[in-house]
Each structure stands twice: as structure tokens, then as C-alpha cells.
């Protein structure tokens, strides 16, 4: 095994981890406000399509990214209204968002490009090194500079999230909503408001994670291009034990598994690469089994909050 294989693998891991970070943070913000969201996959799909379409039309991947986030918010408002205001079962409604958003994304693509049209392609967001005109094969230069703005944003967001939840007043209140909404309400925290804000953040991040796939990762859009990343993100939140740092490590680890399985797939190894793809899911089931139900995430997660209840 030579060095380039290792460095390439590491670089690829970082690439694969970036969309996961966005999606996992989306899940984290949602769960921290007590909303378990299994519809991240769908939000990412619609974000991905929007990002693709907008950058195809405008030629600007950045605009695509922005509108992808906006679309994520819009679709997530359906989830928010149903689960927060109507108190619908969160998991069920997350699943519905998956069905709906995937159908919507596929539909918009069909309508715009027509059935069976030749594969449309877009330009990807440029990396910092290419913007600066630096070309180097040095591993560290590549790792640190040959990245799109979104990669820096992803890591910045992780840092921000860690600080927000641990050091700020607002972050503390936010967490209280997910842990014990009634107690939060008695302290004058606007529980419903925080939950809606959470849904906006979640929608935006999930939309961005999806848009990343079509503005920074692949030049084409195909249905199902999110490929389970929304669920891996859910896994990453559980595996990372609901903390920003943990989520980052989980995403890097899952990104590494993903990069490894792609390498295996290409090299034609006899070891089925799918076993590596299974790791996030099996790891999550294992983690859940080991930590037990009591410590599994914010205590108020999954339960509807009703104002006046006797």
C-alpha cells in the first residue's frame, strides 16, 4: 500500500464527510429541539435538485447552494407545521417528507429537462486553491486549500454549533426545549418558537447538504443521488452522542468508510464493498443497544408538546 493511496483515501474521506456534516448538523439541530427527523434524506434530495437546477440556469453554484437551503426550509415547514402545531407523529411525518420531497425533486427534474433528455451537467464550485491559482501535489496543501468554501463552512458550523450549545445562553435554552419543554416553558422560553426556529435551521442545513452533492461533488443530478446519506446523518447524530464534536468524528469515520468502499469497488477486490457501507447502520444499532433507551438523546425528543395538558 503506497502513500498516495493513503493520502488519497484521507482526502476522499474529507470529501465524503462534508455533505454528511451538513446533514448530521441538520438532524442535530432538529433533535436538540425535540424533533426527531427521519426526513433529512428527502430534504437533501430537494436541496440537491434545487442546487443543481439553479446553478444550471444561473451558472452560479453559490446561488444554487443558497436556493437549495431555502428550498430545504420551505419543505421542512410542512414537517414543522405537522409535527409542532398539529402534533403529528414525528417519525411518521419524517418518512412522509422523504416520500414527498423525493417525488417533488424527481418531478421538477423531469418537467424541466424532459423525460429521457441527455444528461445535463453543471460547473462545480471552485476550490480555494484554484481560486488562488495554487497548484501543488502536497498532501497538506491539498487537504487545507484544495477545498470548496462549503468544506470550510461545514467545519466552521461544527465549531459554531459546539460553542452555541455549550457556551451561549440561547443555546442552553434551545437544549432545554429538547430535554424538558414544560420546564423550559415555565422559565419563559418560547418552546413552540424554538421548535420552529430549529426546523428552519434544519431545513437550511439539510438543503445545503443536498445541494453540496450537485454543486461541489457531482456535475449531474440523478434521482436518489442522496443515496441514504440522510439516514447516515441520523446515524452520525446517534453515534456522535448528540454533540457537535461527536457528530463531526462520526461523520469523518463514516466518510472514511464510504471512501474506502469506493476504493474497494474500483479496485475490484473480492471483498464485497457493501460490508463497509453497512458500518454506519450497524454501528448505530450497536450504539443504541449498548447505551440503552434512557441515555438515547434529548429526553423530550419524539414527543409532541401541548401547551395545556392535564
Amino acid at each position: 500500500m503506497d502513500m498516495t493511496f493513503v493520502t488519497n483515501l484521507l482526502l476522499a474521506s474529507v470529501h465524503m464527510a462534508t455533505p454528511l456534516i451538513f446533514l448530521a448538523l441538520a438532524e442535530l439541530y432538529s433533535q436538540r429541539a425535540g424533533l426527531v427527523h427521519i426526513g433529512i434524506e428527502g430534504l437533501a434530495a430537494i436541496g440537491s435538485l434545487t442546487g443543481f437546477l439553479v446553478s444550471y440556469i444561473s451558472g452560479s453554484p453559490m446561488t444554487g447552494m443558497f436556493l437549495g437551503a431555502l428550498m430545504g426550509i420551505l419543505v421542512n415547514m410542512i414537517y414543522a407545521y405537522a409535527t409542532i402545531t398539529l402534533c403529528a407523529e414525528q417519525t411518521v411525518y419524517g418518512m412522509i417528507i422523504n416520500i414527498f420531497a423525493l417525488a417533488l425533486a424527481s418531478f421538477i427534474y423531469r418537467v424541466y429537462f424532459g423525460a429521457g433528455a441527455s444528461l445535463a451537467q453543471v460547473n462545480l464550485m471552485s476550490t480555494l486553491s484554484s481560486a488562488l491559482g495554487i497548484t501543488s501535489d502536497n498532501f497538506f496543501v491539498e487537504l487545507l486549500l484544495d477545498q470548496t468554501l462549503m468544506v470550510y463552512l461545514a467545519y466552521g458550523l461544527v465549531l459554531f454549533t459546539a460553542v452555541y450549545f455549550n457556551k451561549t445562553k440561547s443555546g442552553l435554552n434551545y437544549k432545554a426545549v429538547g430535554e424538558y419543554p414544560k420546564a423550559a416553558a415555565t422559565l419563559g422560553i418560547n418552546v413552540i418558537g424554538v421548535k420552529y426556529v430549529a426546523s428552519i435551521i434544519c431545513g437550511a442545513l439539510a438543503g445545503m447538504g443536498g445541494a453540496y452533492l450537485t454543486t461541489c461533488y457531482s456535475t449531474t443530478y440523478v434521482d436518489g443521488n442522496v443515496a441514504g446519506r440522510g439516514f447516515i446523518a441520523l446515524a452520525a447524530v446517534i453515534f456522535g452522542r448528540w454533540s457537535a464534536g461527536g457528530v463531526l468524528l462520526a461523520c469523518l469515520f463514516f466518510g472514511f468508510c464510504d471512501a474506502l468502499q469506493i476504493r474497494l469497488q474500483i479496485s475490484g477486490s473480492s471483498m464485497p464493498y457493501q460490508f463497509f457501507q453497512m458500518i454506519p447502520y450497524i454501528a448505530t444499532v450497536a450504539v443504541l443497544t449498548l447505551i440503552g433507551a434512557k441515555k438515547a438523546g434529548p429526553k423530550g425528543a419524539g414527543k409532541p408538546y401541548r401547551k395545556e395538558e392535564r
Binding site: V36, I38, T91, F231, L234, A235, I238, Y281, I282, T284, V285, L288, T289, G292, A293, K294, A296, G302
Partner: peptide, 11 residues
């Protein structure tokens, strides 16, 4: 284990 059957069955 009292675990959330939905998440596990999805995984």
C-alpha cells in the same frame, strides 16, 4: 432494551 423500534428498523 426499550429502544426506539423505528430508528432501528430503518437502519
Amino acid at each position: 432494551r426499550g429502544q426506539n423500534e423505528m430508528i432501528i428498523s430503518i437502519m
